[in-house]
């Protein structure tokens, strides 16, 4: 049997303590794994393992509870912010965050999202925007770009047929009860560090009950986009970033 000490001796990297040993179902190259890692690291580093409840959506991250080892509530499609509202109102000292995709947050759950922002709930919304429905097999999302091909826009998103992509971050920033809105990505190490810093600030806001924090991560879906992981990052930089520019949209914290 191999000795554990022998491994640690040469260890240069290990998965965060709060990431479980379950095999992730995410596709290689998907941004979810990286964001999960950041979240797990932060909960550990900020000492929130005994003070955090998360809400998972319907979408690719529906199984997030299998990977990050804290208390989770699995939500009906789009309803995570309503669930988080009650969790935080009933347990005001906890960190409460939702982890949602674009279909969940910006299509079916629009009302729940908007009204949690309207009320300025002291929660964090982590919004993974990859401009596509990953789990159901690559259909159009509300944030799908004009001309982008998906399973339900096989000839490209046509505005006459499908309307226009919209920017939930900008809408969130308009709300007086929202403290912090930022748009980040995790396509390179510097971006990962910036995203981690942003989520840390958002978590601090929730613990301090400073209003809603909305962290949008512009993300890749190489399977849905039918591109290699590397090409996906390039496509995202070229096409997604101009439509969804990175940076803070609001910072009143």
């Amino acid at each position: 049997m191999m000795k554990v000490e022998k491994i640690s001796e040469n260890m240069v990297y290990q998965k965060p303590r709060l990431i479980t040993n379950n095999t992730m179902h995410y596709c290689p190259g998907c941004s979810h794994g990286t964001v999960h890692k950041i979240v797990a690291e932060l909960i550990d580093e900020m000492g929130l393992e005994d003070n955090a409840v998360a809400v998972s959506p319907v979408g690719c991250s529906v199984l997030a509870y299998n990977y990050i080892d804290i208390d989770w509530v699995q939500a009906a499609h789009g309803r995570a912010p309503a669930i988080a509202t009650a969790l935080k109102r009933l347990m005001p000292d906890r960190l409460v965050f939702t982890y949602q995709g674009d279909g969940d947050l910006a299509a079916i759950g629009t009302a729940e999202t908007i009204h949690s922002l309207v009320r300025g709930e002291n929660i964090v919304i982590i919004f993974i925007n990859n401009a596509i429905y990953g789990m159901t097999g690559g259909q159009m999302a509300p944030t799908t770009l004009i001309g982008q091909k998906t399973a339900t826009t096989p000839y490209g998103r046509d505005t006459a047929l499908n309307g226009f992509p919209y920017k939930m971050g900008e809408i969130a920033a308009m709300m007086p009860g929202v403290t912090y809105v930022t748009r980040q990505s995790v396509d390179k190490p510097a971006a990962v560090r910036a995203a981690k810093k942003a989520i840390k600030k958002a978590f601090e806001n929730s613990i301090g009950c400073k209003g809603t924090s909305f962290v949008e991560i512009v993300a890749t879906c190489n399977s849905g986009w039918k591109l290699s992981p590397v090409a996906s990052n390039d496509w995202m930089r070229e096409n997604m970033f101009p439509e969804y520019p990175l940076g803070d949209l609001k910072n009143n914290g």
């Binding site: 509530v73 309503a82 669930i83 988080a84 509202t85 009650a86 969790l87 009933l90 347990m91 009204h115």
Partner: peptide, 13 residues
């Protein structure tokens, strides 16, 4: 819709 999901959140806790 939101009310019952708030109930879901509170009940979960």
């Amino acid at each position: 819709t939101s009310s019952i999901n708030m109930i879901y959140g509170g009940a979960a806790a």
